[in-house]
């Protein structure tokens, strides 16, 4: 029994996303690099998880594979009860559109659309109408009601990232993935964005998974997973910035 299995247990019905024995290699033969080395993990519904690890630890790769942005070499990945391996591009895209929300490091808003249009973009792409009540709730949570008609270039970085969070929330996805969502923000804006994500978990019952290297951002999570060399090596519940930093230091000295 590998160490990771003892930590995370087996796939449960409460998991919003799960990985079982996932291997991700780049290249082949002697030059092959193993980014994920037999990783198994369940990401629980209604929980805020942060994935941490030093550069090159495979934390981003894990998230990409879980979110259907990248394919795995072996093992299996599921969103809810849908197995991702073998899905066609079309089905995978629809799955991302309907069941996953994304928040990127560099905001990635469409510059020609207004804040509101950016928020409702995935719903509009699907050809559906937004749920008005839910949208109002989301917008209130974001605190952007007076900024909805503005274009991204007229918004601050923090505001842009809040719009991006709004876009992720708007379609009520089963799970939201954030790739260094505070990476481009100052500490005040970081706090705002993490606060909104926290709120979405506590008040709206969202499931959120972020990849970050910022212990302060990770401290907003319920659970922190630590990766090193493509393996999950540690886990922390109810973290604080200090306890996260402490674990990180321990990991680095050990490796």
């Amino acid at each position: 029994m590998t160490r990771s299995e003892t930590i995370t247990g087996f796939r449960s019905s409460t998991a919003a996303a799960s990985a079982v024995d996932v291997v991700k290699s780049y290249g082949s033969g002697s030059t092959a690099v193993r980014a994920l080395d037999h990783v198994s993990v369940d990401l629980n519904r209604g929980e805020f998880t942060a994935i941490m690890g030093p550069s090159g630890s495979g934390k981003s790769t894990l998230m990409h594979c879980l979110a259907g942005l990248d394919t795995v070499t072996s093992g299996s990945v599921a969103i809810g009860d849908v197995e991702l391996r073998g899905l066609s591009d079309k089905k995978m895209t629809a799955l991302r559109r309907d069941r996953i929300g994304f928040v990127f490091q560099s905001f990635n808003l469409v510059p020609t659309l207004t804040a509101l249009e950016n928020i409702t973009l995935p719903i509009a792409i699907a050809g559906r109408r937004p749920d008005r009540e839910w949208l109002a709730t989301v917008i209130d949570t974001l605190g952007l009601r007076d900024r909805l008609g503005h274009r991204p270039s007229e918004l601050s970085g923090g505001q842009q990232q809040r719009v991006a969070v709004g876009r992720a929330l708007a379609s009520r996805p089963e799970i939201i993935f954030g790739d260094e969502p505070t990476g481009n923000l100052d500490s005040r804006s970081s706090g705002e964005v993490m606060g909104i994500l926290r709120q979405s978990v506590d008040q709206l019952g969202q499931t959120v998974v972020i990849v970050t290297h910022d212990p302060r951002a990770a401290s907003w999570a319920d659970r922190v997973l630590f990766l090193t060399d493509g393996r999950i090596v540690d886990e922390l519940r109810s973290p604080t910035a200090d306890s996260v930093l402490d674990r990180m230091k321990r990991l680095e000295t050990r490796s």
Binding site: L69, N108, P111
Partner: peptide, 16 residues
């Protein structure tokens, strides 16, 4: 590229 990548990530089909 980035923008199109984002659109694909948030669920825009190739056809779209």
């Amino acid at each position: 590229r980035r923008e199109i990548g984002m659109l694909r990530a948030v669920g825009m089909q190739r056809k779209q």
